[in-house]
């Protein structure tokens, strides 16, 4: 089985308990305007270009598709990344055999102890449900803990098995106002919330992760809605508020994408955050 990997990052501490290795899946059904990992949205390989690393050696002029003159021609074949001497051009997708992914993850076994392990992230790992579940299952068999960062947008049929092999869910809640949710992410939040509640009923350990964007979702209906949602879910449910940032700017331009959203005005102030916490009641 092949896993569509964008990146594997070791020694992570903020993506579940203990020291973790995060496997970023490529491809996501949502298209959040503020996405922090824009290179993982598309399911296809894209070339990430870092202008600061480019020395203008011209190796990439050999592009067989003429993407050097017009980036629109790029089909993500990766020919230029193989030729680039400096790493200024890099692939954002590599299809890796599951055993290889697992082998990389297990390299840090000595550091996991009882709490650390693997975290699936992305992109949306559940956009590749068979692969994601199989990887979690294998990791569990190896005796390490498992976690998943998910937007929650996937078919409910996978929930029971997912619960079986995933110890902790880091569950994104982008907006409880469905009109805005559709507008900003491209999909409705109904499936996400239904899955969440069903998973909660199954007794899963869930941490809600809520991006906070000033003027977008830091509105009373969303914040009070979160409070109500927490009341509905089992008491062990935790919530983390993540203030929006625009540090992904470089990634957006590196992918040759238009920079339509990225604005500092959406960054919440400390006051905004405090107010949000009060409304949510945390």
């Amino acid at each position: 089985m092949q896993i569509p990997v964008s990146q594997i990052q070791r020694f992570c501490m903020h993506d579940g308990p203990g020291i973790r290795t995060v496997v970023f899946f490529k491809g996501c059904p949502l298209s959040c305007r503020w996405c922090h990992n824009p290179e993982t949205q598309s399911f296809e390989n894209q070339i990430m270009f870092d202008a600061e690393k480019c020395i203008g050696c011209g190796s990439c002029d050999a592009c067989p598709h003429g993407a050097q003159t017009d980036r629109k021609n790029c089909i993500g074949c990766g020919a230029c990344t193989a030729l680039c001497p400096t790493g200024a051009r890099e692939n954002t997708l590599s299809m890796m055999p599951m055993q290889q992914v697992l082998e990389i993850v297990l390299r840090d076994r000595a550091f996991y102890g009882a709490s650390g392990g693997i975290t699936l992230s992305g992109g949306e790992p559940m956009a590749h449900p068979m692969e994601a579940i199989a990887l979690l299952k294998r990791a569990k068999e190896e005796g390490i803990t498992t976690a998943m960062e998910t937007c929650g947008f996937f078919s409910e049929e996978y929930l029971p098995e997912l619960k079986k092999y995933c110890d902790v869910f880091l569950w994104d809640i982008k907006d409880l106002n469905d009109v805005r949710h559709k507008e900003n992410t491209g999909v409705s939040n109904q499936i996400i919330l239904k899955n969440l509640k069903q998973l909660d009923c199954l007794g899963a350990k869930i941490i809600l992760r809520c991006i906070m964007l000033r003027g977008i979702n830091m509105k009373e209906d969303h914040l009070r809605g979160l409070r109500q949602l927490l009341e509905e879910l089992s008491p062990q449910t935790k919530i983390e508020l993540l203030p929006y940032h625009c540090m992904f700017e470089k990634k957006v331009s590196g992918l040759g994408m238009s920079d339509a959203f990225n604005h500092e005005r959406y960054i919440p102030t400390a006051e905004d955050m405090e107010q949000a916490r009060q409304m949510i009641g945390i």
């Binding site: 990052q9 992570c12 501490m13 903020h14 993506d15 922090h36 992760r209 983390e240 993540l242 203030p243 929006y244 940032h245 625009c246 540090m247 700017e249 470089k250």
Partner: peptide
Amino acid sequence: VRVSGWSARFVTLNREW
């Protein structure tokens, strides 16, 4: 560096950040 709930490589950030 820790940004906001996750880590990013420092040198990959732009100057202002």
